[in-house]
Amino acid sequence: MKSLRTYAILYLIFLYAPIALLPIFAFNDATIIAFPLSGFTTQWFTELPQIPALIDSVKNSLYIAVITAILSTLLGICAARAAAKYTFRFKRPIMGFIMVPLVLPEIIVAVSLLVILLQLGLSLGAGTVIMGHVLICTPFCIAILNSAFQNLDPAMEEAAIDLGETPWSTFRLVTLPLVSPAIISALLISFTISLDEFIIAFFLTGTEPTLPVYLWSQLRFPARIPVVMALGTILVAGSILLLILAEMMRRRGLRRAGLQDKGGFL
């Protein structure tokens, strides 16, 4: 099975090739993105903090991503807990329906929200972007949290109740510590998704662009491309860092539950 392994490694190279180019050209001393490389420079990175519009968009995006992460993780906890602990009527269709935003084309989510928000007379801004982002992040949070809640041994909670704890203190003292790695993982993933999301933000952001919307506006100007590469390098490095953190959390959660690792997030 050597050929299969070779194919797998070539496939990984194909997957990583575009991202690998980012730092190469972010440090390249030329405005045109092409080989041969001309020289090393950190000029594009030092230019970044001097663009006020960029700084504003970063602040806006961080604000949106933090709120989105908290809200979608809370909704995810409700759904995952309900799915794992209780049987209720129409459980399967309800759970399926909640996961729909995962597969729906984002443009559909974006335009339908736009229409309804404008009809309600709401002004577009960070708040409307958060509404859209929570919608698409919640299914991811549920996917991550589901396995954690499903792996909980019900005997632990029953023991706490038998020993005189209230349902709320049981949840706080027993359940929460056991699922907290998954919760942190869900927070990090939804934060990452919100920070990178473009289409919904593009439609719902109004006059205050998020970072991806600002990036989109810059792609038209060839002279800005090296700066975009530098910014992209920072973004991708940040995302990868967050992901490694999320993955470490997920694994710690599995170890806490005493389970074998069976795969990734989804």
């Binding site: 997957l15 575009p18 991202i19 050209f25 992209g232 995302s239 990868i240 989804l266």
Partner: peptide, 19 residues
């Protein structure tokens, strides 16, 4: 395999244009 998927979609598409 999942790492590249979580990095900015806009940046990845733009990189293909550059490539």
């Amino acid at each position: 395999i999942t790492i590249p998927f979580w990095t900015s979609y806009l940046i990845r598409v733009f990189l293909w244009k550059v490539i």
